[in-house]
């Protein structure tokens, strides 16, 4: 049995540490995969979060025939891991740019090309934290879409909801976050 399958079973059995183990495993794998990909691509232009996460799943030995719902934990961990990776990167670049006292020791010795700007990323990260405190399940949805790039339909499969429900939740979450950002910027 692969590590990831074992952890998923532990999770199902109610093992409290399993979630963090799953996160660690996924985080390490994604980081590694991103590094491999970035090393392999000359222009660094083809890195797709979904593919990355998918590959991580396969490489970690996830038993593939499992339906997506059973992989919810994994996707959740992957979304969190992607977020951590990208946010760390943005923070570091930010810190270096601003010449703050943060040591320039790279967490990743490569850079993942990101569509969003670093400031955007950090802002989204912060507002997502806020959303997570009030509406954790919507934060989960945002993470899946924003950091893993899943479509609403895929999210519906992962989260076990209907697509229309998620569509409504998405509209609310998006508006909520934008409202929050405006508020933060105007105050």
């Amino acid at each position: 049995m692969s590590d990831v399958t074992r952890i998923l079973e532990d999770l199902r059995a109610g093992d409290a540490t399993a979630a963090s183990r799953l996160f660690e495993l996924t985080y390490a794998e994604l980081r590694r995969l991103a590094a491999v990909r970035m090393a392999g691509e000359s222009g660094g232009q083809t890195l797709q979060a979904t593919a990355l996460v998918h590959e991580a799943w396969l490489r970690l030995g996830g038993d593939d025939p499992q339906p997506w719902q059973n992989r919810a934990h994994f996707f959740s961990a992957a979304a969190e891991a992607m977020r951590r990776i990208l946010v760390d990167q943005a923070r570091r670049k930010n810190a270096q740019r601003r010449g703050s006292g943060t040591p320039a020791v790279p967490l990743l010795d490569f850079e993942i090309p990101v569509v969003a700007t670093d400031d955007d990323l950090l802002e989204v990260h912060e507002v997502l934290e806020a959303l997570n405190r009030v509406h954790p399940e919507k934060a989960e949805l945002v993470k899946l879409r924003y950091f893993v790039g899943l479509s609403l339909e895929q999210c519906a499969e992962v989260l076990g909801c209907s697509t229309p429900t998620l569509k409504r939740q998405w509209a609310y979450a998006r508006a909520w976050m934008l409202r929050q950002m405006r508020g933060a910027n105007s105050s």
Partner: peptide, 9 residues
């Protein structure tokens, strides 16, 4: 901002 994933190609 939220309509495209941060990492999307």
């Amino acid at each position: 901002r939220f309509d495209t994933a941060a990492l999307t190609l």
